[in-house]
Design a protein around this nucleic acid. Sequence first.
RNA 1: GGGCGUUUAGCUCAGUUGGUAGAGCGCCAGCCUUACAAGCUGGAUGUCAGAAGUUCAAGUCUUCUAACGCCCACCA
Length: 935
Amino acid sequence: MKECGPFLSLDAKHYEPQEIEKKIYEMWEKRGVFVGDNTSKKKPYSIVIPPPNVTGRLHMGHALNNSIQDVLIRYKRMDGYDALWVPGTDHAGISTQSVVKKHLDAEGINYRDLGREKMIERIWEWKEKYGNQILRQLRRLGASCDWSRTRFTMDEGLSHAVKVAFARLYEKGLVYRGKYIVNWCPIDRTALSNDEVHTKEGGEPGHLWHFRYPITDSEEHVIIATTRPETMLGDSAVAVNPKDERYTNLIGKTVTLPLVGRKIPIIADDYVDASFGTGCLKVTPAHDLNDFQIGLRHDLDQINIMNEDASINDEAPEEFRGLDRFEARDKIVSAMDALGLLEKIEDRMTPVGRSERSKAIIEYRLSDQWFVKMRPLADLALKASEEGRIEISPHRWDRVYRDWLENTRDWCISRQIWWGHRIPAWYHKETGEIAVGIDTPSQVLENPDAWEQETDVLDTWFSSALWPYSTLGWPEMDAADLNRYYPTNLLSTAKDIIYLWVARMAMTGLFHMDDVPFHHVYFHPTICDEDGETMSKSKGNGIDPLHVIDGATTEELEGPINEARPHNMETMLKRLHKMFPDGFKGVGADALRFSLLTLNSEAQQVQISLKRFEEIGKRFTDKLWNASRFVMQNFEEVPPTSEGLADAQIEDEWILGRLDRCTAQLREALDTYRFNVGFEAVYHFFWDDVCDWYLELTKERLKTGSKNDIRRVQMTLGEVLSSVLRLLHPAMPFITEELWGHLLPKLSAGELMSEEISSDTLCAQAPFPVDHGRFNEELDTHFETYRDVVRSLRNMRVGANLSPKLELEAFIFPMEEEIGKTIVSGEKIISRASGLKSLTLVSEKPEKMSVTVIPGAEIYLNVAEHLDVEAELSRNEKALEKLDKRLAQIESKLHNEKFTSRAPEQVVQAEKDALTEVQRQKEKVLHALEELRAL
RNA sequence: GGGCGUUUAGCUCAGUUGGUAGAGCGCCAGCCUUACAAGCUGGAUGUCAGAAGUUCAAGUCUUCUAACGCCCACCA
């Protein structure tokens, strides 16, 4: 018996998740059921979590992705694997530093005054205090991570791993230092990788200024166009296309740069698009990526005119020095205008790069940076992908991944911030010599005063790139975890970090470990709101998973909207108030997870709204709770005999067959990451087959059957329910564990188990169901016929407006002996399900009864004086219409000679059979109508 | 500019080798049938975005078009 739990009485009519979920999670943790055992004889199955930022709060994307991982981990754990899910967090360099900076700002402290050491201390303090919030939230979700292995990208081991990785890459010449033009954020004062810069689609409103640059010693001028006039201070050439005949005579001459007075050459370069603007391009190598490249080709001066904060520096004429870049822009425009050199100003949408983090417009800045040489590494990853050592699902992302690897550029990994892994490189103060080492290099130790350490830290993604093996003990090559769990089985993540993270893990994994970091990559769809917009903080359209789990007042639901203050704020609030005037009642983690999983198709995005969690997850948890309650109530009176078990009835065999089929479907679906398909199969099996049919059919047997027959039903129910709980556990771990706590003692006490299950927690010990091969095609088809008959009978009853309680007589007039036999074999089932007094096979048509024609038979229901001729007529006329439509379809096919001659024999025969069948039915319906009209 | 995705019932979406269009919600009618009214039973609802093609047969394959969305690269 369990030490604790189950927690909720089965008397409860509605399932109340919140309290139970917390208690159950505690129980699991206390028992250590999530802990991987690297000495186990079981086969390993491992996943390393995409580490959320320490600054993060759980959002819907996390909820989805972690539900997915948890499903697979729990599935494998139950299925006999030593399943390990390694959790952890990412130090998120810039993001965390700016969060703490804001806190300090609020205290009136400038972090720069604090100094590097103190600031880092403050960030650590903050991290210790708030950094684990997201891990606690993952627990609320039910994530079965091995918390004893929790890692942090800046903990001791991982920091060591980062240094080792850097040093090894450096030794191999794959890390280098160089001057380069980088994306520069003037707010955070750091370089950013391309992936951290975002450009709004279609650009942002701006202007295109056309300036005249006078040709030296001439009355002529060239006209250049720019969207960033301030950069002219750093111009070192004007370029034209060599094929542009308008300017060939100018090549080699110089222009005198207005305001500055510098003489700069007119050069020819293919990069210039002759058809754009005037075909003349000002070249500013220090402040534009393309200009930088042109500058290299022509050996132009690289004139940096800006400070770190993008104010104008002393390279510029005095009047502009110290000005902010946008002030300088205005001033330059008016100065040019005053000189009569402003040709015109056009309004124009211009591409504007912004820092993803600070939202500031980025500058391009020439500086000393560290880079990873990507080509050799990318080739490793490409090869692994071509050899199928990394498989990506859905498959379409494979190409996206490969395209990037084929075209990738060197990766700038230095960041000018304090929070992160400080680059283990030292510079000789005089010679400029560089020393790199995992520990402080000996020459530095010998003469420390002559050296200084690099102040930059590494891009956060540098440490993330090592995550799958650094978390398992690398660079210790004989670490038990590393040996056992690397390569991991799966990486599940969002596709927007396919380059930023996935590709880089593949590259470094292959380089450092000589093996792929994961065999499979699964990209889940993007979560969008009900209008199809991606959820984001700035739009205020996010749904907080914890609100879904715990519920929220209307005010709390407003939170994200109020914080973001989007342009359509009013509409959003209005809609919220209309839909949830009394707040949202929490549905629990199970319902959240189940909803997300059944919505998770192979599409690129999935639209969700709060309502959906009620419609899908909540409804289903409630159904599961109630049906289980009912089943278990019927175990109360179990006679604990183990002899004389009655034979299985048709419905018993049928439901067990369907159970097996459902099990096979779910396994197949989970193995191929088709979560919606798998869980929908279980959903429908449980709701439709188990609840609506099997439970309804067996109520009577449970009430009035013999003890031995009751036991048969109980035994079947026991297997069905215990299997369903196990099938659903990966998706809905809490409620299934809770119900398992109720069910298991009853099953054991009554010797109702048809298989050995010796376990006290479902989570850890219960085996995942297997397909016993009991699905019987023939029996299942027969059962479908019964259901057809029942549906027809119920329909007739409703048509005659008769109470469902009234027991009626029904008659079957079969067109074929076979059908008659089939129907008779299901007599009990049909009678029970349609409230019949009797079901009789007749060879002569009964009269004055309600009639329905189904394939192969006519069904009559004796509704006596309640026969509503009008209703009968209209129902059968409708049936006739349908048959006619179908008939036309078939006939047109069969009349088509090409069809009969070219379609496969079987298909043609099937159509012919269908024709006879439909014709036969039509005749019967016509006949019935005739008789009805005669009444 | 390049790549990808989506377009199926009023809404949100399934639809795996081409072979009579499905689910949930919503809607209509009837039921408090002893697990569940947060439920049960029955019912209505579709030129599968448009066009062309391949095929005996197309929601499904090919091409083109349109709308919407995402990613990458960015003409100063």
